[in-house]
Design a protein around this nucleic acid. Structure first.
Lengths: 356, 356
DNA sequence: GCGGGGTAGTAACTCGCGTTACCTTCAGGC
DNA sequence: GCCTGAAGGTAACGCGAGTTACTACCCCGC
């Protein structure tokens, strides 16, 4: 509207809008020359002197390229999109951080589109579809889908139009490359640590046994025990809600079931929140951590693990690395490289603190 | 490159790229007509029948507008940018959530640019400047700066080119509108709650006394006491590191300094992490919460406050609302409305749980 | 039968930039 | 004296839309 103000005041010409043409005029060359210099085309023949003049003009005028126009003309956008419920439920926010950092390194922009967790990545995906659509309107060159917790998801149809990578979740139909934590190895490393500390009788505070995290972690625990010639006593595996209260209840059950001599000397809690509750149960009974009962967690939720007293030894979910890997994988895909693996497992490192 | 494949295979015409012209052709009208219909111009005269034909063509072809082209032509982008260290240090991630949600409601896109906390919003702002510059290249119509904790900041020069709003921080030079929590009212409400529960002798576990959060919250506490005819006993105010350990140490000092009779019956912890440590100190001494000692926190870090046992009564930092308000303020500014207030204070509501 | 005024729609220009094709100048070789 | 080739550029088109100015048609009243 109102290019030359027929309205009232003769406002300053136009605050924004130093274009390449302006730079060209200032430098006394053609716009094409400016374009060549700015996009650093080696094969174009522009004398050093002209280059310098142009650079000086850019400086003088405070020229700033218009990313949209550039994308339009060059038919590429330098943007990836990520649609995620993490913004809503920030448990796994480090995925975004990892992805952002990697994108930034690659000189790319990450458009973050939120999705409600309510219907997120599930069968009825109102917001999902809208978000995906919006991102495609921005002409993103690739899509990431990230979930707060490891699970199977359904991705909107339109995601098929550009390369797509799943982070911390996997495609129920198995079509899309995905990046997930190596839960099994994580469970193994946790129990190995307890075994190494001399514990033979180990209680497990389990999540909902059906979710991928639980399946993997328990399987890993079983493997570690088997390697030591031990078996996982089903009686010592107690499931509970994935909260501090759930952990408290489960820990009480395990601790109170046996006389002191037969009581497990260590608890493997499948997440840190439950470990937080287990701490309470243990302390209430006058037992010391790790003296009487060692505790090991999972997830490495800093706010809990680093602040519990004693600090909680736990297995970290490699969120940040997963985010970065997601962007890298996407970069490979958009560059036309074939997918190396359908599902990439990322290591869950053990973080030693003071509870074992 | 390679528009019509001189390379090898005659690939499908072009996966992406149904344009308005295609739609127009399919509907048997001019591109202009399509544009008019899609942008819903009421004054344009297009018959209902033609409108329907166009809508049908859009459907049939799966047309998706090109946001970049639209922005270029219309000279407006529908984008706001937010540069923030929150991605790096996700303490205040709800600011992003609030801003995202509000932006989404307003049909706008929020470009999130990360900034290292190391030099974030401080005097030497490498990443800051780069992020701001990148956002301006995208032609964002407004900028938000968000900090993880309430403090004064310096904003890059170039931010002056578009409307700018600060969230959870304020401009050291006082030029930019900002949105910050009402720390003072928060401190007041916390102590009022303790007074109402009958406590007269209240210990305060303080942060670094110089930061805005501490100044405000303590001032508010003092006010509440004054209203009740009491004074804040300087001996009962102990500062510590803003961690669980810091809270533990401070709580020990306060609790051990007096014989049981003179001991404070309530602790106001200026953040939840310190409250977490205070819990330990109290429990260690065989005291009950809230029976012997009531505890009230600040910040409402869900992961702590909702999972401590007993659950922590605390004052919430209204991050989400601040984010939303930031976007709203920006919307007002970009719409040309004058700024109503330099600094908007947002209420910190009391969250009753079980520790008082 | 002619002007006026609405209705329905289109041609053409623009936004800022990438890119291809072409043009000029000058030096060197035969 | 003519041709060739490189250096140093420029004109012009296209990307996908928004927007303005203008045309063509029809109905109505006088």
């Amino acid at each position: 509207m109102a290019k030359n103000a027929s309205s009232s005041k003769p406002v300053a010409v136009r605050q924004r809008g130093v274009t390449m043409s302006d730079v060209a005029k200032h430098a006394g060359v053609s716009r094409t020359a400016v374009s060549f210099v700015l996009s650093n085309r080696e094969n174009a023949s522009i004398s050093e002197e002209t280059r310098a003049r142009i650079a000086e003009a850019v400086q003088a005028l405070g020229y700033r390229p218009n990313a949209g126009a550039r994308a339009l003309a060059s038919q590429r956008s330098d943007w990836y999109g990520i649609v995620t419920e993490i913004v809503t439920a920030p448990f796994a926010v480090d995925i975004i951080k990892g992805a952002q950092d990697q994108a930034w390194l690659d000189r790319r922009f990450l458009l973050i589109a939120p999705s409600d967790q309510a219907d997120a990545l599930g069968p009825n995906q109102g917001m999902e579809d809208a978000a995906t659509e919006k991102l495609l309107e921005q002409r993103v060159e690739g899509l990431l889908y990230a979930a707060t917790y490891h699970r199977g998801v359904h991705v909107p149809e339109s995601a098929n139009e550009v390369p797509t990578v799943l982070i911390n979740c996997f495609d129920a139909d198995g079509r899309l490359p995905s990046i997930v934590p190596d839960e099994r190895a994580g469970g193994r490393v946790a129990v190995e640590r307890l075994l190494q500390a001399g514990h033979r009788r180990i209680g497990v505070i389990n999540l909902d046994p059906d979710i991928p995290a639980a399946v993997g972690r328990v399987a890993g625990a079983r493997e570690a025990l088997a390697d030591a010639g031990l078996e996982l006593d089903p009686e010592l595996v107690v499931a509970g809600y994935a909260t501090a209260d759930g952990g408290y209840d489960a820990a009480c059950q395990i601790l109170d079931r046996y006389p002191a001599k037969e009581r497990p000397t260590a608890l493997f809690c499948l997440n840190d929140r439950m470990a937080m509750g287990a701490y309470d149960a243990i302390k209430e009974r006058g037992l010391a951590i790790p003296g009487d009962i060692a505790v090991i967690g999972f997830d490495n939720q800093e706010l809990i693990a680093a602040y519990l007293r004693p600090k909680l030894t736990t297995v970290a979910l490699p969120f940040e690395k997963m985010g970065a890997l997601g962007v890298q994988t996407l970069a490979a895909l958009t560059a036309g490289q074939p997918i190396t693996a359908d599902q990439q497992l990322v290591d869950c490192p053990l973080l030693e603190r003071s509870s074992v």
